[in-house]
Amino acid sequence: MNPHRLAQLCFTLTLMWALHALAEEVELHIETVLASNSSKEFDARLQELKPLLVRTFRYSSYRLVQEIRQQARWGEEIKVALPGERYMEVTPKAYDRHRISLQVMLREGINPTSLLNASLSFPDSGTVVFAGRRQKDGVLIIRIGATAKGKEQQP
C-alpha cells in the first residue's frame, strides 16, 4: 500500500471513529405521576409501577400526568416542564462501567435556586424515582429512566 492510500485509510478510520463517538447518546424516559387521596383511581398506564407505588406510598390515587421519551447527547441538558410551574433539568453526564451518571435539578417558578439538585449514577437501563414535593392535595412522583445507546449492554 502506497503512503497516499495509507493516509487516506487512516483518515477514513479516524472519521468513522469520530462519527461513532458523536452518534452515541442516551434515551431518557421521564414519567410524572400525581399521587393523591382525592379518589381511588389507579391509572392503567402505571401497571408496571404499581407494586413500587403501593409498597412505598400511601395514596389512594395515582395518575400519570406526563410521559416523555427523549434522546439526548451526553452533557446535553434536557428541560422538562412539570405541573405546578416547576421544571426539571436532567443532564446525562457520563457513562462508565455500564453505569449512567445523571445530574437532576428541580426548579420552581423563576426561583434561581433549585429545590433539589442531585448528582447520581445508576445502572444502564435502570431507574431512579424522586418524590415528595406537595402538588395540590398530593405529591408528584417522578421516575427517570436512562438507557445508553451505542454502548455494549450489560449482560
Binding site: 413500587l52 448528582s119 415528595g132
Partner: peptide, 27 residues
Amino acid sequence: KSIQTSGSGEIAVQIQHDAASNSTLII
C-alpha cells in the same frame, strides 16, 4: 454522589432501593 436542596424549615431526604423494581427512590 450528592444531593442539595433549598427551602424553608426542616427537610428530610429519604433514600431507599427497591430491589423488586430495581429502582432507587429519593424522597
